Amino acid sequence: MGFTHETLPQRVRFAAGEADAAVREEVELLGARRAMVIASPRGTEVARAVTAGIEVAVLHDGVREHVPLEIAEAARAVAAEHDVDVVVSVGGGSATGLGKAVALTTGLPLVAVPTTYAGSEATDVWGLTTDGTKTTGTDRRVLPRSVVYDAALTRDLPAGLTTTSGLNALAHAVDALWAPRADPINAALAGEGVRALAVALPAVLDAPHDLTARERVLYGTYLASAAFASSGSGLHHKICHVLGGRFDLPHAATHAIVLPHVLALNAPHAPAADRRLAEAFGSTSAVLGLADLYDRLDAPRSLAELGLRDDQVAEAAAAILPSVPPSNPAPVDLGVLEVLLRSALHG
């Protein structure tokens, strides 16, 4: 073996039904006294409950998907105005993303309390959107110092969002197998993450009050995201970042729809990854295993249903092409991207 693996420094707590106590303890460990709490308008009630044990200087609900730059700058101004010394994000990937945007320029520590399966909480990846272009980067300042996973906070997640958010988590694991810094440790984390998600996602939909199944989805989400954070962003995420930033498509659903098409492109050129995924799915091949899971989840299949138009495919492909990672197993050119996108467009 010859590789270099880096594990990101982060505390991770699983505390079903105990998020408020866990957040209080994590903030105390940081020595922080004045918190800026970030949550979406729909998530403020949960955020207040989760942060009841700490001093909240301000609760900021100016959250938008894909973190437009003006939204990030407004949140940074709020943090400065209230002289906060810690940021606590409560919610999905958009809330975590805005918390990261504040941490990026202020250096404030971030504590993340996920209520979906976005996985952003386990990575040092930030993203900002300006004039339809989503820019991403990595910076240790945005890595949450602590993550508090409380499965009880996902009980109100609608079935549709449970599916798309969970498949977004799955996409982190799949992408990690052929991303620029893929290595055997990332592959092991990704494989176990897929195995957990493939079993637990259908179980959550079948029994929405099964807290054990929800905990297992969060476990799979964390493993997949940790693998992704170490391996870097592969073709799947490059495609979805362009689609989200340029055409304002919903993040989780876009990832869910694009994933089978990227897997079908790459799996024949990556036999080791194909075998690992097939085993994790309990199938004879990665593509068949994923297709079976999508059938069980009644997952969305069409980008057209999200608002993408056929006349936008060429523009999207041209925007994606410069960011295609050299590590991608299958050769990729403009024609390949257009075929893939049209296939995802029509489902």
Rank of each mutant, 00 (worst) to 15 (best):
R141M: 06
P9R: 08
T116S: 10
A151F: 01
E338W: 02
V287W: 04
V86G: 00
D295M: 10
A316H: 12
D295H: 13
A253N: 05
R145E: 12
C240I: 12
N266T: 08
A101H: 01
L108S: 05
L223Q: 07
D124L: 12
L259H: 01
A286I: 10
A75V: 01
L29P: 11
T254R: 00
V199T: 15
G137K: 01
D210N: 05
A213W: 01
A74D: 15
W178Q: 02
M1Y: 12
A291R: 15
A179N: 06
L153A: 10
E6Y: 11
H241A: 11
E65Y: 13
V113K: 05
V27I: 15
H255Y: 03
Q312L: 06
A198M: 05
T115D: 12
Y117L: 03
T162S: 12
N186G: 15
T164H: 05
R246S: 14
A188F: 10
L205Y: 07
G127T: 00
R195E: 12
V125T: 08
L104M: 04
T129N: 00
V113M: 07
D295W: 15
G166T: 00
P250W: 07
R48G: 13
A264R: 06
A179S: 08
R141W: 05
T115L: 14
D248V: 09
R195D: 09
A72L: 00
P329V: 15
A171N: 04
E18N: 12
G234W: 01
N328P: 11
R42D: 14
L110D: 02
E45S: 15
G119D: 03
A203E: 00
V46F: 04
A103G: 01
G91H: 06
T116W: 09
H261C: 04
L306Y: 12
L303Q: 15
H66M: 00
L157Y: 04
A286M: 09
G107C: 01
V58G: 06
P184F: 01
V88N: 00
T133E: 14
A21F: 11
A267R: 04
